[in-house]
Each structure stands twice: as C-alpha cells, then as structure tokens.
C-alpha cells in the first residue's frame, strides 16, 4: 500500500474520532458513571463510598456526575438503549417515574450481603434505599430565641417577613405542602388545606426560593430566619459558621428515602450493583453518618451517634417513631395540578 495524503488524512481522522469518542473502540469497558446529588452529597460519596467500592472491586474506574434526580431521568430517558449513567439516586417522587418508565433494572437482592440488614422500609428490590433525608424546621438561633417545636410556629406574627419556603418544583417544597395539608386535616389526596394555610402565611413569607439550595443560602444573606429545611442542606452552612439549626417538629420529621438504581441496559451492571452494595455497607454508612457528612443511615446495624443521634433519632426504633413518610404514588398523580395551582396562586 502506498501512503498518500488521503490515507494519512483518513488515519488521523480515525484516531481523532477514537480520541473524541472512546466508546467507539471500547464499548464495554467505559468507566462506571455514578450520578450522585450535588454539593455536600457529592463530597460525601466521593470520600466514603468511592474508596470502599474501588478497594472491593480491584480499583475499578468510576466517575461521579452530580445532578438532580429529575435530570438523571431526563438523561436516561433520552438514551434508553445506551444510558450515559450506570447508577442513579432517586428521591421518592422521581423514583416512581423512573420505575413507571421502565428505566431501571432490578437490584440483585439474593446475591447481596448487606440488603437484608437494611431497615424494612429501605428494602426495595427495584433499588434499595441507601440513606434517608429529613425535613424539619431550620432556623437562625441568633434571631429565633426559642427553638421552634411545631410547624405552626411559622405562622407566629413575630416572624413577619422572615419565613422562607421553596416552590413545589422540589421534593422539599412538595413534601412541606403535603405535611401542611396533613396537619390541617387534608393529605396526599386533599391539598386544599395546605393552600389555605399558605395564604395565611403570606404576611410572614420573606422569600419563595427557586430550589432548596437557594433556600439554605438565604439564611446566610439574612433574608430569612426560619423555614422548612433539609437536615443535610444546612450542614454545609453550619460547618462554615453560619448560625442555622435544625428542629424536629412535634408532629414528626418529614422523611424521604433516597434509593440507588441500576440503569436499564447499562454495560456495567455488575459494577453498578457492586457500587450500591458498597453504599449499603454498615462501615460505609457509619462513616457517612459522622461529621462532616451527617448522612442518615438505612442499615439497621449502624449505631446512631453524634449529631444524628441528638437531632434526628437516637436509634432505629426512635427513627421509626419520629419519621413521617408520605405516599408519593398519590402525590405524583396530583403534582402537575398542584404546581400549576402554586404558579397561579402564590404571589409574595
């Protein structure tokens, strides 16, 4: 074969393409892609789950790709046959969407060492629960002198213009509205009391944040002093010295389970399962529970300690007693209508 300009051009183009799209040459051997959550979640998973997983799996290559559950679904739905993600984390609402759309492969529970140690509520074969998120009342202890004890405290006249909420796009915002409906005589299938209560809350509302992350930073700006808040969202702020604390409402902490799922049609199914196995391991969950991560464990073998024991639950029994779970299968059915109503009715 004589080498001419065209051959060289073709060869270099091929090399370039293989460089740009490594999938062309090694379709089966791509890195395991773990879509985690943004912010402190990514940090926690990178520092605790990833090293454990790599040690147990011969230093397998893994990349973390942080985003929201809903974004993971959008990405996997757009490429059903070759998903760009192998392992996904789901809040309870998106979880049902993911399962309904057939985008997840079941977790191999029989082969799992840690699955049977999970609390019963976390033993979900479509994808086990690897941690809990807790929503209670977050407040600035320098401005709010008596720690709040009930959701009703948000309506106190002294907090005029100082209460923050998020809109219903987030799990946090939706869960808060459902809880509000419940304590005012409604529930997942009757949201009216929540909207009525929110109308009464309007003089107190200082901000409707676009997402939970923005809501947490409003404490830092002094824009708000009290709000429904995610236990983990305020930990970064606390670590940075922002005065913000978490209080358990007497009606219970709103809890949602975060589940880990294997993407259907992933080329990395065994490694994906291995990563979830690591995420369920008691030693991993114990480490995640400690400072600075404060991730609430789902493995029954983990002994509650430190701030989690003090602020969330002192043991698994206490956890069962104080956690309030909502029925997201009903919520999902109504959510579009609720969001539309929120768009139209809530003006600060």
């Amino acid at each position: 074969m004589t080498l001419n300009r065209r051959h060289i051009l073709a060869a270099s183009l091929t090399l370039g393409a293989m460089n740009l799209f490594p999938g062309l040459s090694w379709a089966q051997a791509r890195k395991l892609v773990f879509a985690t959550f943004t912010g402190s979640w990514e940090e926690a998973h990178r520092e605790v789950i990833v090293p454990h997983f790599r040690k147990a799996n011969g230093n397998a290559d893994i990349v973390l790709d942080p985003m929201l559950s809903v974004d993971m679904i959008a990405k996997v739905a757009a490429a059903k046959n070759s998903p760009p993600i192998d392992v996904m984390l789901m809040d309870p609402g998106p979880r049902l969407t993911l399962i309904d759309q057939g985008l997840t492969a079941p977790f191999p529970t029989d082969a799992s060492k840690n699955y049977r140690d999970l609390l019963p509520v976390a033993q979900l074969p479509e994808g086990p629960g690897i941690f809990f998120q807790a929503v209670g009342i977050t407040y600035n202890p320098e401005k709010v002198k008596t720690p709040p004890t009930s959701w009703d405290d948000l309506w106190k006249p002294e907090y005029k213009g100082r209460v923050g909420i998020t809109n219903m796009n987030s799990t946090l915002g939706t869960a808060f509205m459902v809880e509000l409906a419940k304590i005012r005589g409604g529930g997942e299938d009757n949201i009216d009391p929540a909207f009525a209560a929110l109308k009464e809350l309007q003089p107190n509302l200082g901000a409707v944040a676009p997402n939970p992350g923005a809501l947490a930073t409003l404490f830092q700006q002094g824009q708000i002093d009290i709000s429904p808040g995610n236990f983990n969202a305020i930990q970064i702020l606390r670590a940075r010295g922002v005065p913000v604390e978490f209080a358990k409402p007497k009606t219970g902490t709103i809890a949602f389970l975060t589940t880990a799922h294997i993407a259907k049609n992933t080329p990395n199914a065994p490694l994906a399962a291995a990563l979830i196995e690591s995420a369920m391991a008691p030693e991993v969950q114990t480490k995640l529970m400690q400072a600075p991560f404060f991730v609430i464990p789902t493995n029954g073998k983990v002994k509650m300690e430190g701030d989690i024991a003090k602020m969330i639950a002192k043991d698994q029994e206490d956890l069962k007693a104080s956690f309030v779970f909502h029925d997201w299968s009903i919520i999902n059915k109504n959510r579009a209508a609720w969001i539309e109503r929120f768009n139209k009715e809530i003006k600060v």
Partner: peptide, 9 residues
C-alpha cells in the same frame, strides 16, 4: 431564577 426567586414565573 436566582434573583427572581421561586414565585416570579
């Protein structure tokens, strides 16, 4: 979204 907030649509 960051300056307009969650209720200005």
């Amino acid at each position: 979204s960051l300056v307009g907030g969650g209720q200005l649509l």
